[in-house]
Deep mutational scan, measured.
Amino acid sequence: MQIFVKGLTGKTTTLEVEPSDTIENVKAKIQDKTGLPPDQQRLIFAGKQLEDGRTLSDYNIQKESTLHIVWR
C-alpha cells in the first residue's frame, strides 16, 4: 500500500509499505529516500508519536494515510 510522509518543509515523500511493517522498517525506507537516519526521525500520526516496535496496523494506518515527520 502507499502512504505519504510529510515533513516540516511541506515536502511529501511517498512510500510503498505493508500494514505489517514495523515503524522501524518504515524509518529505514524513509532513510533510503531522504538520507535522514532513523535515529533522527520522529513519526507522528493522529497526534501520536509512533514507536519503533509497533506496526502500521497497530496504529490503524491505512493506504494513503499521511504521517508527519519531525527531525530530532
Results as ranks from 00 to 15, higher is better:
Y59S: 02
G47F: 04
G7S: 12
K48F: 09
N25F: 12
G10S: 07
F4V: 05
T55E: 03
S20H: 12
L8E: 08
T12P: 09
K33C: 06
T22N: 04
T55Q: 07
F4H: 10
P37T: 08
V17H: 01
R72S: 14
A46H: 14
K63G: 13
E16N: 13
K33P: 03
G7F: 15
V26T: 04
T14V: 13
I30N: 01
Q62H: 11
L36W: 15
K27R: 05
L36F: 10
G10H: 09
G47E: 05
T55N: 05
I23F: 02
L8H: 13
R54G: 05
I30A: 02
D21G: 02
Q62E: 11
F4E: 03
A28H: 12
L15K: 00
T22E: 03
V5G: 02
I69R: 02
V26P: 00
T13M: 15
G35R: 05
L56I: 09
L56W: 02
L43P: 01
D39R: 12
D21T: 08
P38Y: 10
T12N: 07
S20Y: 10
P19A: 08
T22V: 05
P19D: 06
V17A: 04
R42N: 12
D21M: 11
K48Q: 14
R54M: 12
V26F: 02
I3V: 05
G10K: 08
W71M: 14
Q31L: 08
K63T: 12
I61C: 01
Q41D: 02
I3L: 05
A28Y: 12
T12G: 06
G35F: 04
V70W: 11
E64Y: 14
E51G: 04
K27Q: 02
E16P: 03
G10F: 09
L67H: 00
I30K: 00
S20W: 13
K48D: 05
K27L: 06
V26H: 00
E18R: 14
G35M: 04
V26R: 00
K6N: 06
K11C: 11
V5I: 14
P37E: 07
T13F: 15
I23G: 01
K33V: 11
T55V: 06
R54Q: 08
K29V: 04
D32G: 10
S65V: 05
P38D: 04
L8D: 06
K33L: 14
Q41S: 07
Q40P: 02
N25I: 13
N25M: 15
I3C: 02
G35P: 02
Q41E: 02
T66W: 09
V26Q: 00
K48N: 11
Q31W: 15
Q2I: 15
P19Y: 07
W71L: 15
V70Q: 13
I44D: 04
V26D: 00
R42W: 10
V70N: 08
D21H: 05
I23H: 01
V70K: 08
S20E: 09
T22C: 03
V17D: 00
T9G: 15
K11S: 10
E64P: 03
V17M: 03
D32N: 13
D21S: 08
D32R: 12
R42F: 12
T55W: 03
L50H: 00
E51P: 02
V17G: 01
E24D: 07
K27F: 03
K63F: 08
T13L: 15
G53P: 06
K11D: 11
P19L: 10
Q2T: 15
